[in-house]
Amino acid sequence: MKGFPDLPPLWWLGSIGLIYLGKYLLPGWHFTLFVLNVVSWLFLVAALGLIGRSTLWFFRKKTPIEPNHQPKDLIVEGPYQLSRNPIYLALVMLTIASAIGHGSVLGIGAAMLLWKVLDRRFAEPEEEDIRLAFGQAAEQYFKQTRRWF
Rank of each mutant, 00 (worst) to 15 (best):
L113C: 11
Y20S: 06
F58E: 01
V105H: 12
P5V: 07
W115R: 13
L21D: 12
G135M: 08
T145H: 12
F58K: 04
L42E: 02
W12V: 02
A99L: 07
R84I: 01
P9V: 07
F58I: 02
S83W: 06
P86N: 06
I96L: 15
F59Y: 13
M93A: 14
L18S: 12
P64A: 03
L21R: 03
G28Q: 13
F43S: 01
S15I: 10
L91S: 00
F31I: 03
Q70D: 10
T95D: 11
L33A: 13
S40Y: 02
F134T: 05
F31T: 03
G49Q: 06
R146N: 14
L82Q: 14
P27A: 10
F31K: 03
T55G: 14
D129F: 12
L36H: 05
V45F: 15
P27R: 05
A133F: 10
Q70P: 02
K62D: 09
P86H: 11
A97C: 11
R146K: 13
D129P: 00
V105L: 15
Y80I: 03
L10G: 15
F142I: 06
K72P: 00
F134K: 08
Q144Y: 13
L18Q: 06
F31A: 05
M93H: 04
E126L: 07
V35Y: 11
F134Q: 02
D6Y: 09
E66I: 05
G17Q: 10
D73M: 03
K72V: 04
E66Y: 06
A123V: 09
K62W: 00
F142A: 06
L36D: 07
L44C: 04
L44V: 00
I108D: 05
H102R: 04
I100C: 06
H30Y: 14
L91I: 02
F43D: 03
P86G: 07
P71H: 00
V35D: 00
V35P: 00
S104K: 06
P86Y: 07
L132C: 12
H69N: 10
I75Y: 01
G107T: 08
G17A: 14
F59T: 08
W57S: 02
P8R: 01
W57A: 04
D6F: 14
I108E: 08
P27W: 11
G109V: 13
K62E: 09
Y80C: 07
G78R: 03
Y80S: 02
D73V: 05
F142S: 01
G22V: 05
W29K: 08
W57P: 00
W57M: 09
A138D: 07
S15K: 03
A137Y: 08
G49M: 07
K61R: 08
W148E: 13
P71L: 00
A46F: 15
V38H: 00
A110W: 10
S98I: 07
P64G: 01
R146Q: 14
F31N: 05
L7P: 05
V117M: 11
G103E: 08
R147A: 09
G22W: 03
K61Q: 09
H69S: 10
N68H: 12
S98E: 05
F34L: 04
G103C: 09
V38C: 01
G78A: 13
N37Q: 14
R146L: 13
F149W: 15
T32I: 09
K143P: 03
M93E: 01
R120E: 15
I51H: 00
R60T: 12
E127W: 03
W57C: 08
G28S: 10
S54G: 10
L48N: 01
A46V: 13
